[in-house]
Structures are given as structure tokens and as C-alpha cells.
Amino acid sequence: MHQISRPGFLRAIGAAMIAAAVAMPAAAQQPAAGGSSPTMDAIRARGTLICGVNTGLAGFAQPDSQGVWRGFDVDYCRAVAIALFNDPDKVRYVPTTAQNRFTALQSGEVDMLARNTTWTLSRDTSLGFDFPAITFYDGQGFMVKASLGVRSASELNGATICVQPGTTTEQNLTDWARANRIQFQPVVIERLEEVVNAYLAGRCDAYTTDVSGLAATRSVQPRPAEHVILPDVISKEPLGPAVRHGDQRFADLVRWIHFGLVTAEELGLTSQNIGQAAGDARPDVQRLIGRTGDLGRMLGVDNAFMVNIVTRLGNYGQMFERSLTPIGIQRGPNALWPAAGGLQYAPPFR
């Protein structure tokens, strides 16, 4: 009779091996000691960057009708590939859910995440990540059907609220409910598509996530006007790429690509005019385009990396306009500081 319990055992052993595998690939990539970057070395040896992106969020990361990944987050993957290979297509995209993105990065399945991920203290420390930059300042909001007649989140007492697990969203939701003495019934579904379906089908009165995520979801509905994003923003969601802790060189590269994109916008360098920037006498411009300063080399890439990136992808503002403006997201807090009163601000590129 013992053979009957054996399949259970085999499964358990299989699961144990998966658990081991989660930690195993780490053996191949010891963190950097001083000069070299194991992640960059691995990417160069492989010839492609493996980038963890969203499973499909309009404006941020979504395959178009030809199957080409497009979006604001995707452009950061492209930018890293341009810096390393001068080729935006040397990227393999791995779609990750809110739930499995962190194991994908920890285990080495992806080199980096460019996937609307909030920088928090515990993710930075006990999950073993680094957050090189904040590419999008966001906050959590609620979306309801216009027909419900709800004007503000405080009217949601007693409501059923759809939320995705493995997010800061679900934790903020419980905090907010407690602080405001609001009772709610959660519906917690893992796949984005299924949560959104549940909300659309009326299983929930409201759907909550980052406001950018709400705008993205609303923009792809056949009649976006039927859904209202409530004015309340209940949290801070600084979104940006994440890399494994311990490889400072790679983190530096990703960080300065973002700052380079912001600096390009500050300097008025765009995909159209950066080709003629060699004639621009401003010292800041000369450093950004790599004619002086040797800054690319310090990051372990070509000195012209920012020219290559901006030529193909545009500066920060152009990336924003291409991907996010069409889905109705405004610059708001992501405008430049101090020129436009936003929070996007780059330390000196020198």
C-alpha cells in the first residue's frame, strides 16, 4: 500500500528541488568585489539583457500587435541594452506577475526588473535588492464604475475591493482601512487579467492599485468614461527598476542611465538634435555626449552611451510623452525640478 503515498513524496522532492534551484543559480554569480560587475559580465557573455517586465500594462510594458514589447518600463530595458551593446533589441523580456517578480530577480532568472515596482525599505534590505532610481513617482488610488455614483474613497465603507497579492497595494489597503475605520471585503486574485475581469464583472465595487496602473487599465477599456479614478491617493509609490543587492557597478549603470535621460531633458537634448550636439559648447552637453569627462568609461560602458540612448529612445520627457501621455497620464510630480516644479532631478552628470 505504500506505493500510494509515494507520488506525494515525489512531488515534495520535486518542490524541494525547485526551492533549492531558487538559490542555486546564485552560485554562478558572486557579487562584485571592487571593479567588476558579475551581472554586466554575465550579460555581455550571454549577448542579451534579460529584463523582468510586467505581464501587460498599457503604457508601461505590453507587446504590440507585432509582438514587440513597448512602453515606459520597456524603454529602460532598451536603454541598458544600448549602453552595453549599442543595440536596443538585445533584450529578452520575461513577463513577471506582482507575485513572482521578486523570486525571478533573486534567483538570477532576470538581470533586472523594470516593472512598476515600489521602492520600500524591506524590499531594499531583507529581499536583497537595490533600487537605483525612481523613474516614476506614483501613489495608490481607487477606480470605480461611474454608475456607482461614488465620489471619494471615504464613501467605500462596506465595499468589496479587488486587489492583486504580492503588492504594496494590498498592504496599503489594509493600513488605509484601519486608519480610516473603513470596513471592506477584499477579493485577492493573483493574475492582473483576472483581477481586472473580476472588477469589470462587478465582483468588486472598486479596484485599487497604483494610479498609473488604474489609468493604464482604464485606457484599454472599450468605454473608459464608464470608470472613474477617485481623487484620493492613499500612499507613496516611488516606482523604478530593481537590481540584485551586491552588484554596485550594475546598479550605478542603471541609476546613471536614468539620470542621463533626465539631464538630457534638462539640457534640451532630444532624439532629433543630440546628433548635432557636438557643436554645442556648453560643458554639461560635452560631458553628457561623452566628448569630455570619460564618464561612460567610469560606468564600464562606451563614452557615447547617452548619445546612443537618446538618439534611439529620446530623453526622459520624450519617453514619457511617447508611452504615458497617450494613456492620459500627466507629468505632474514627474516634471523636472526646478524648471517645472516636479520631482525629477538628476545629480550632476560629471
Binding site: I18, V22, Q106
Partner: peptide, 21 residues
């Protein structure tokens, strides 16, 4: 579902999977 979320929030995949097993 709950162990997965725990694992996601604490980052402790091995412990989480050990609990499920």
C-alpha cells in the same frame, strides 16, 4: 496563495516553499 504572498513580502522563498511542502 497566502504562503506565496508571505514569500513575496518577506523575500524568503525557501522558507515559504518549505511551509507549503
Amino acid at each position: 496563495s497566502i504562503a506565496n504572498t508571505t514569500l513575496n513580502q518577506t523575500g524568503q522563498a525557501i522558507e515559504g516553499i518549505a511551509i507549503i511542502m
